[in-house]
């Protein structure tokens, strides 16, 4: 109980700080913060899948792309207001997750990783295809109008986009937190720990895994929608295989089974390209790869795992002192 309460306060505290940042940051930093939250939600989708279900997706960038494109198409081609596109983007990516997850998750093991790997490689091709260019803008992509603050609030567009992203992102974190704590969460973890025993206890394994994957795809799709709103532009090459891999690295760095860790994962995805470029202009990918391998060997539970270890130690100072 105590732990739950401190989690609630911690979450509210982080949220408050993030809101406060809206009023003190330059528009350049606001954009960076917006993208941090966007990637954090995308990584959160993977935490739900990997951390609570033991499955691996290497193609989360595909769901990010679907969310982005649904929002972009509705805004650019059909003049939908930005906020109305988010639920549609969520539904579309959830559906795609269900369709991909259904065949792969009946089998377990590495099949989902393989299928999503294929999905991630194939998606940019589909987005470029000529037959769909009326809808997707083909190789050129689509450009959208910038969102503005509603109700004549005294906010700049950048501030409002950041706050909107923060509100939707906060809701997604709340959803994931509730999901993993409740009855479904316990079933999900049972699946991760001992899938055969869980099945014997009457948990419909494939069904649960597929639904979890749909939720995971939905979260990442919402992140994609938010990114479209913030960037106001989509093009196929933004959603190449490297995006999926970057999100995967973010997952590992943040911690596969840590919901707060997803924020670190998001920060990593947003800021690492700059840092990697500083270290080595020629081969930033090598930095990603080296970090990934190093985390697997040294800190397989990521930053989130480290934090929860520290938190446990803080709660039991006597034990730590020994």
């Amino acid at each position: 109980m105590n732990r739950n309460r401190s989690a609630v306060w911690g979450g509210l505290g982080v949220f408050a700080v993030l809101v406060a940042l809206a009023f003190v940051s330059s528009s350049y930093h606001l954009f960076q913060l917006t993208m941090l939250v966007v990637y954090a939600v995308a990584v959160l989708g993977m935490v739900v899948l990997t951390g609570y279900n033991g499955q691996i997706s290497l193609g989360q960038g595909a769901f990010f792309a679907i969310g982005s494109y649904v929002t972009a198409i509705l805004m650019a081609n059909y003049n939908w207001p930005y906020w109305a596109t988010v639920p549609v983007a969520a539904a579309a990516s959830a559906l795609m997750g269900f369709l991909i997850g259904f065949p792969a998750l009946r089998l377990g093991g590495l099949y989902l990783a393989l299928t999503t790997f294929a999905l991630a490689v194939a998606v940019p091709q589909v987005l470029k295809v000529d037959a769909l260019s009326g809808l997707t803008g083909g190789v050129q992509g689509l450009t959208m109008d910038k969102a503005e603050a509603p109700f004549h609030l005294p906010l700049t567009g950048d501030q409002w986009i950041y706050l909107f992203t923060l509100i939707v992102g906060g809701l997604m974190f709340l959803l994931a937190w509730n999901l993993t704590r409740g009855r479904i969460g316990r079933a999900m973890m049972a699946v991760r720990e001992q899938s055969t025993a869980a099945e014997a206890m009457g948990i419909n394994l494939a069904g649960l895994k597929t639904r979890t994957f749909a939720v995971s795809a939905m979260l990442t799709g919402v992140a994609g929608a938010l990114s479209s709103i913030a960037v106001q532009f989509v093009a196929p090459d933004s959603f190449n295989f490297f995006l999926s891999i970057t999100l995967f690295v973010g997952l590992v760095v943040g911690g596969v089974d840590s919901i707060p860790g997803a924020l670190f994962g998001g920060a990593f995805v947003e800021f690492l390209p700059n840092i990697a470029n500083e270290i080595s202009k020629a081969a930033p990918g090598a930095i990603y790869g080296a970090i990934l391998i190093a985390f697997m060997f040294v800190m397989p539970r990521g930053v989130g795992g480290l934090l929860s270890r520290l938190a446990r130690r803080a709660r039991k100072p006597a034990v730590a002192a020994e």
Binding site: I56, I245, A283, A286, Y288, G289, A290, L292, M296
Partner: peptide, 18 residues
Amino acid sequence: VLTSVGVFIGLLLVINAL
């Protein structure tokens, strides 16, 4: 499984960049 996938994806990135 996650560890081995992570390591091999890492290797993929490193070799690709090199």
